[in-house]
Design a protein around this nucleic acid. Structure first.
Length: 836
RNA sequence: GCGGGUGUGGCGGAAUGGUAGACGCCGGGGACUUAAAAUCCCCUGAUCCUUGAUCGUGCGGGUUCGAGUCCCGCCACCCGCACCA
């Protein structure tokens, strides 16, 4: 070949078209080959691909292409998580229809992905806003309703009175709506719920099998599900009522000195009905903030009622409080207060001068030891507790539960932190909930034959509120049961439902139902699922829930959809700011020696921390501009180099230039294949065989940065070597090893120096096991653990020989300096350590 | 507060208990060139009495012939959850 430079501006597109025409990445579910389903979390079509997407999809792409070379039939699909708020915001701000906005973003982003050369099966592409997709979702929702997993109840929500919509907790900032700035109200609305709590145990247990998930994510989900075991029992109140409470520390029951209920507990509410003071107190509780900082410093507040609660063992009357720190939606909304062994109770008791009794001590002799300003929640022996005295905490827990159950006043229970999933959203751009409200028949499901319930196109965002609700005709329909006048449900489903089953639809796309279980079984579970850790709980828990639920409903055989999960780090960049604190983008600054200056004004720029690329900090680099300049392969290589994939990757101009230089280095090397070359180069051949094995291992372990380093090493060695048959082999090997990572230059080289059609259809190179073994090794010689010399010895040399060689070393003798050799440790093929 | 992670040159990072710093970036020197770009070669942890030696993987101990790696105790930073009874 004569070209001295690899030109991605022509080559990239040529090979992308070639793969497209050959259908190289179309997955065949009828193939006999072993199957690999490689999936990256599908993007929200926000408008443009960012570097985070590029990194995410490059990792998946390397795996997909590698698996294909390894003889697997690979499913590597792409689609669009296309419902959501930004589309409605665009509609409100710019008057574009959300659908139109979304679809044009999809087109733009698809073109961008294609320019990066990802090995995607575009024949399976869909967007969740396609009526075909959300229609099937509606069908699944109805199936779940049939199975008793969907219900409706009234629930408190954040209501923005100006925008007339429900806000997510994240959208409430300092008690105000994030868009309108209006004071957010708490409102009770009828909402649809999915019964995820029915699966709390299954979802927790299932985590145990997910060995290839990051420990961190498993723990986050475990904590989120929040299993706790304890005793639920009822106090007899002096008012004649029963008050159920829940405790995880029944062993401390003799230390209880008060009972407290939440402000919105029925007992508190009924007291409020009679007393102005109680009403005022409850109001005060509700005003308390809920941010972390506020909770940290929040004062414990209590209102002492005239009611007392009878202790189940001692019969003593305990005062009943209404307290701000008791939560209505955990346990029973009421607690027994044991100040000695719970920090909150301790603070509360101190403030309201309640007795603080010790009922657990590290030693029985310390039964009367005073507290040192805080509760002791640790383990120990139970004291001052009648029949429990002398028992361990664990024994005492069991004993109290046994007695409560025997005497019928309480029982051991499991309480979960996990709440049912409220899926109602008062929004337009989502999956319409397929139900009809009939005055006569109540809430009636839409018959499946009438699905999809499609969103109306002609909508109006000029006014705040849900456009579906005020649409002139859309919601008016007839009741499927009685045929009378009825109204459609105008709420739509939370967008997280869309991403809870999309991986099933990628695997199987029948027209008449959501998926075909047999087809799904061919591909699932997903072999590698790659995405950001920000989805560790919500998306990943919901997707597991849907899969478990569909399995329990008999619609699927898989329970866990993702066999292995990988959470990749973010792409970060330095930040630049002017003296007045305003941020500058990387292309507004110029390097001036060690420092940076603002190009326009020439004023010095302060460089800030290396943080995630974000528009607000202006430290964003647009992938398109980089690809335009350096080509897809250099960008892909950068995404894989240096940082381990789970850590953050700092973007740098010099880094991408280094990658570009390497692309050109490879190009020159590929040009050095010498058809007439003869002779061998065993050392280089060995390195090539070793690299074949090592790079494969690194890719399989997702240690792309190490694979990259190996390829650099082999490239360096091949460049320096004399022409030989083995050198030709090494060069062709490099071409194959880089194929999953830099597929364009690999194809271009393959067309010239390879055999066969496309390199994407080539197998991973074979290695010769005999060539992995070195015949000479470097032995380190230590004296008292410190390196003194190195020597070369034949592989597998006898221990005695190595010892003799080591002692013969002049440097070693100088270090020993005549001392008596007491011991010699020989590690074959590695080192000799002489101890004096 | 609870849970988890990370800490190695100027920077990103390598290193089955066995030669710490592979590989990349930055920097320095040189070659080629009228010059520049590109490319190639060499150097690049610190210190010193520089043919060599000493120190060096957040800090302090320990185990070991040998510790970045294992154990104990700290520190710092990052992330998640959090008045969860």
């Amino acid at each position: 070949m004569s070209d001295t430079r690899f030109d991605p501006s022509t080559a990239d597109g040529r090979w992308q078209r070639a793969w497209g025409e050959a259908g190289s990445f179309v997955a065949d579910s009828d193939s006999d080959k072993p199957k690999s389903y490689i999936l990256e979390m599908f993007p929200y079509p926000s408008g443009r691909i960012h570097m985070g997407h590029v990194r995410n999809y490059t990792m998946g792409d390397v795996l997909a292409r590698y698996k294909k070379m390894r003889g697997h039939e690979v499913l590597h699909p792409m689609g669009w998580d296309a419902f959501g708020m930004p589309a409605e915001n665009a509609a409100m701000e710019r008057g574009v229809h959300p659908g139109e906005w979304t679809r044009s973003n999809v087109e733009a982003m698809k073109a961008q992905l294609k320019r990066i050369g990802f090995a995607l099966d575009w024949t399976r592409e869909f967007a969740t806003c396609d009526p075909e997709y959300y229609g099937h979702e509606q069908a699944l929702f109805l199936d779940m309703y049939e199975a008793g997993l969907v219900y409706r109840r009234s629930s408190e929500v954040n209501w923005d009175p100006v925008d007339m919509t429900v806000l997510a907790n994240e959208q409430v900032i300092d008690g105000k709506g994030w868009r309108s700035g209006a004071e957010v109200e708490k409102r009770k609305l009828d909402q649809w719920f999915l019964k995820i709590t029915d699966f709390a145990g299954d979802l927790l247990e299932g985590l145990g099998d997910l060995e290839d998930w990051p420990e961190k994510v498993r723990l986050m989900q475990e904590n989120w599900i929040g299993k706790s075991q304890g005793l639920e029992f009822s106090f007899d109140l002096s008012s004649g009522e029963q008050l159920p409470v829940y405790t995880t520390r029944p062993d401390t029951i003799f230390g209880a000195s008060f009972v407290a209920v939440a402000a919105d507990h029925p007992v508190a509410q009924s007291l409020a009905a009679q007393s102005e003071d109680v009403r005022a107190f409850i109001e005060k509780c509700k005003r308390g903030g809920t941010t972390a900082a506020e909770l940290e410093t929040a004062e414990k507040l209590g209102y002492r009622t005239a009611i007392t609660a009878k202790h189940p063992f001692t019969g003593e009357p305990l005062p009943l409080f209404i307290a701000n720190f008791v939560l209505m939606d955990y346990g029973t909304g009421a607690v027994m207060g044991v100040p000695g062994h719970d920090q909150r109770d301790f603070e509360f008791a101190t403030k309201y001068e309640l007795p603080i009794a010790r009922v657990v001590a590290s030693d029985p002799a310390d039964a009367d030891k005073p507290f040192t300003g805080e509760a002791e929640s640790g383990d120990g022996m139970v004291v001052n507790s009648d029949f429990l005295n002398g028992k361990s905490v664990e024994e005492a827990k069991a004993e109290v539960i046994t007695r409560a159950e025997r005497d019928g006043w309480g029982e051991g229970t499991t309480v979960w932190r996990l709440r049912d999933w409220g899926v109602s959203r008062q929004r337009y751009w989502g999956t319409p909930i397929p139900f009809i409200h009939c005055d006569t028949c109540g809430v009636v499901p839409v018959p499946k034959a009438q699905l999809p319930v499609e969103l109306p196109e002609n909508i109006d965002f000029a006014e705040p509120g849900n456009p579906l609700d005020r649409h002139a005709t859309w919601k008016h329909t007839t009741c499927p049961k009685c045929g009378g006048e009825a109204q459609r449900e105008t709420d739509t489903l939370d967008t997280f439902t869309n991403s809870s089953w999309y991986f099933l639809r990628f695997a199987s796309q029948p027209e008449n139902r959501p998926f075909d279980p047999e087809e799904v079984a061919k591909w699932l579970p997903v072999e590698h699922y790659i995405g950001g850790v920000e989805h560790a709980i919500l998306h990943l828990l919901y997707a597991r829930f849907w899969t478990h639920a569909l399995a329990r409903m008999g619609m699927l055989d898989v329970k866990e959809p993702f066999a292995a999960l990988f959470t990749q780090g973010m792409v970060t960049h330095e930040t630049y700011a002017l003296g007045d604190g305003s941020w500058l983008s990387p292309d507004e600054v110029r390097r001036d020696g060690e420092d940076y200056v603002h190009i326009e004004s020439g004023t010095p720029v302060t460089t800030g921390r290396v943080i995630k690329m974000s528009k607000s900090k202006k430290n964003v680099v647009d992938p398109d501009a980089i690809i335009e300049r350096y080509g897809a392969d250099a960008v892909r290589w950068f995404m894989l180099s240096d940082s381990p994939p789970e850590r953050d990757l700092p973007w740098s101009e010099s880094g991408i230039e280094g990658c570009w230089r390497f692309v050109q280095r490879l190009w020159r090397l590929f040009d050095q294949i010498e058809p007439a070359a003869t002779g061998e180069d065993k050392v280089l051949a060995r390195k090539a065989h070793q690299a074949i094995v090592a790079v494969a291992e690194d890719i399989e372990a997702l240690s792309f940065n190490k694979a990259v380093a190996r390829i650099y090493e082999l490239t360096g060695a091949a460049e320096k070597a004399e022409r030989s048959l083995d050198r030709n082999f090494a060069i062709r090997t490099i071409m194959h090893l880089i194929a999953p990572m830099m597929p364009h230059i690999a194809e271009e080289a393959h067309a010239r120096i390879g055999t066969g059609d496309l390199i994407v259809d080539e197998p991973w190179p074979e290695h010769d096991p005999a060539m992995l073994v070195e015949d000479e090794v470097t032995i380190a010689v230590q004296h008292k653990g410190k390196l003194r010399d190195t020597l070369t010895a034949p592989k597998g040399a006898a221990k005695d020989d190595l010892e003799a060689l080591a002692l013969a070393s002049e440097k070693v003798q100088r270090s020993i300096d005549g001392a008596t050799v007491r011991k010699v440790i020989v590690v074959p093929d590695r080192l000799v350590n002489i101890v004096t």
